[in-house]
Design a protein around this nucleic acid. Structure first.
Lengths: 207, 207
DNA sequence: TTGATAAATGACGCTACGTTCACAATGTGA
DNA sequence: TCACATTGTGAACGTAGCGTCATTTATCAA
């Protein structure tokens, strides 16, 4: 009985925590860090202020937890999607598809994600931005690996440093996503990954 | 005498205003909008708080003025640089050169510029982001025009919508710039515009 | 049922910051 | 030099919001 109860409690706690984070995500992504108060999060998630502070030391801590957990999930999804593929071209296609899908099916996350990246946000104390940055560039190294192996195996022309190619592809994805978010009717998101890849590919692939 | 005095005063005012904005730029770009107080700007620019408020209705107004003036100068510089060129390829090179140079010689501006773009910042009330966004996409239309005329004149292959190509090129520039800002020793900025252009060009230019 | 432990609550203290305004200093023209 | 106008000043005010903690409520073993 006792051994069964503790996990139950623990589970309940996790559920509450997730609820708080979910509400926080909605608010932060809509209004931004500084336009959301702890009271607001408390009220909307139907907990008392004090309860919020039982779960998170302070506002920054909450935000940090939120962003990192989202990034974890995001990166895991991409990595998992890439696992199956062998062919480098197909890997790039998969990357584009997976990233687009993950972000587009998770709109509250998108703006937060794009805002928080690259040390551009200023929202929090030093250390946070640096950590996210490092994470992002680590992820870019993985992507660069695909380009590199493509170049090594002569499937790609050597039109640039793999890392720069990775950063370029990724930033193009981001900006197309924002374009679509801002003006979906006029500039729809290119559904076909090749539409995006062609910008690189028509010069990249050995013909 | 009277007619000469008024301009002198006026000029003095402008000088003060610029000083305030300059200090504000330094602070905002280093710490972000919410981490900078009006008192801080006042102190560092050696004016009294009250004086700041003689020049700007409120903090938001000051920030808005700052960002818009910087954008004006930036866009003017680019447009001017492009004026001379006729050839589409050379125009793209010039765009890359001009933008890189303008941003790299103006580091405090860079982070602000990149953060404020694309409605990602949440710093201010609605209307501001929208206006900047519109501005940016208008500017992208100009860049798209270069791609379009290149495609029309058959110098470029038709590998994508001109507007998407413009957004892609521009975002790649931004991300390379950030990369360089974050890790200048490891990932130096590609000095040769062709190094960047090649990512697009090797597939873009009719061979 | 009861006593004890853990969890949840929200009124309140406190600080930081945007903004105001009564006053001081400076400049102007006679 | 004097009255007047313009410009500059910073103490004080109001408020928003973070985080605390004394108190209440729920949980659970005996």
């Amino acid at each position: 009985m006792k051994t069964a109860k503790l996990p139950r409690r623990e589970r309940e706690k996790q559920r509450q925590r997730q609820e708080m984070l979910e509400v926080a995500l909605g608010l932060f992504s809509k209004k931004g860090y500084h336009q959301v108060s702890m009271h607001e999060i408390a009220e909307k998630s139907e907990f008392a202020i004090g309860t919020l502070y039982k779960f998170f030391q302070n506002k920054e801590e909450l935000y940090r937890a939120l962003v990192f957990e989202l990034c974890d999930r995001f990166e895991d999804a991409i990595v998992k999607a890439l696992e199956g593929e062998d062919d480098v071209v197909e890997k790039l296609r998969t990357y584009i598809r997976a990233k687009s899908e993950k972000l587009r099916s998770n709109l509250p996350f998108v703006r937060l994600f794009l805002a928080e990246r690259r040390g551009v946000s200023f929202n929090l104390r030093a250390g946070f931005d640096e950590e996210l940055l490092k994470r992002h560039y680590n992820f870019m190294e993985r992507l660069a690996g695909i380009f590199e192996s493509g170049i090594n195996s002569k499937r790609f022309k050597n039109i640039g440093e793999p890392f720069y190619l990775a950063v370029a592809l990724d930033s193009v994805l981001d900006s197309f996503l924002l374009l679509w978010l801002d003006t979906p009717e006029r500039y729809p998101y290119p559904e076909d990954p090749d539409a995006i890849l062609n910008i690189f590919f028509q010069g990249l692939v050995e013909s």
